[in-house]
């Protein structure tokens, strides 16, 4: 039996619930691009927050809170069959309990650990690589990450820039975290056309660019090393790599 869910974490956990108490799931797939097969019957699962919260609590209790975190990070990844990774990991986890974390090389555990690591690494990277620009009423930052890490950035920046209004915009997924000096929320978002930066903003961008070019030591120049740390795909949103006005 293939279970189809609605792309939410709650939906995924509801599938796990049904897989445990009713038919064991052979695979879990997103509803919107599922290819029907003649061999496997499929079933659309309606997301039920009560059931999902029971599974959520069960993972934390019967496996461990680290395992729960791993599962959530994998869910945020862009791995093409992340649902099945999670399914297998949890099936094993409910058998082994917290020991599963130590079983690093197990074929059902290793891909989960690796994927979760990639997601958390990218989130960590964007703690640094995000660039805000002043637009008058709020600070605006956009990014195009590989994984859906927006929600992992929210708490960090809400604490750091507590006295500011800001929007962090994931251009790839057309979502944004919006913070209003009190709390943040995640929402669908498209970039408004009239977004323009203030005069002070362009002054500080120029200062930053000046600083960035001058801090490099000429006799130690190492572009390859720089490329390793700042991959080309992230550079479109970085002031110091797009703005070549001052690169002398």
């Amino acid at each position: 039996m293939d279970y189809l869910y609605d792309n939410t974490f709650d939906g995924l956990l509801t599938c796990i619930y049904y897989s445990y108490y009713e038919d064991t799931a052979k695979g879990i797939y997103p509803q919107d691009n599922y290819q029907c097969s003649l061999v496997n019957p499929s079933r659309i699962i309606i997301t039920d927050p009560i059931l999902s919260s029971r599974v959520y609590a069960a993972i934390a209790q019967k496996i461990s809170s680290t395992a729960l975190k791993q599962v959530y990070y994998v869910f945020l990844s862009n791995h093409p069959c992340k649902e099945n990774l999670i399914l297998k990991y949890l099936q094993l986890g409910f058998k082994f309990g917290r020991k599963i974390e130590s079983f690093h090389t197990h074929p059902d555990v290793l891909p989960v650990h690796q994927t979760a690591r990639k997601v958390s690494f990218e989130a960590h990277r964007f703690f640094g690589l995000l660039r805000f620009a002043e637009t008058g009423d709020f600070l605006y930052a956009s990014l195009t990450p590989d994984h859906n890490i927006l929600i992992l950035l929210a708490d960090h920046f809400a604490d750091r820039l507590a006295m500011e209004n800001f929007i962090i915009h994931d251009q790839k997924r057309a979502t944004a975290v919006i913070y209003n000096k009190k709390e943040w929320y995640l929402t669908d978002f498209t970039k408004p056309d009239m977004l323009s930066i203030t005069e002070a903003e362009s002054f500080y961008q120029h200062l930053w660019l000046k600083y960035f070019t001058h801090i490099a030591i000429e006799s130690r120049k190492n572009k390859r090393l720089q490329n390793q740390f700042v991959p080309q795909r992230y550079r479109n949103n970085l002031v110091e790599f797009t703005n070549s006005l001052l690169s002398d």
Binding site: H124, A216, E218, K221, K223, L225, Q226, Q228, V230
Partner: peptide, 14 residues
């Protein structure tokens, strides 16, 4: 754990 914000042309973190 510290956070690096960018890397200059010599590959050192800023």
């Amino acid at each position: 754990y510290g956070i690096c914000h960018t890397w200059s042309a010599d590959g050192r973190c800023v």
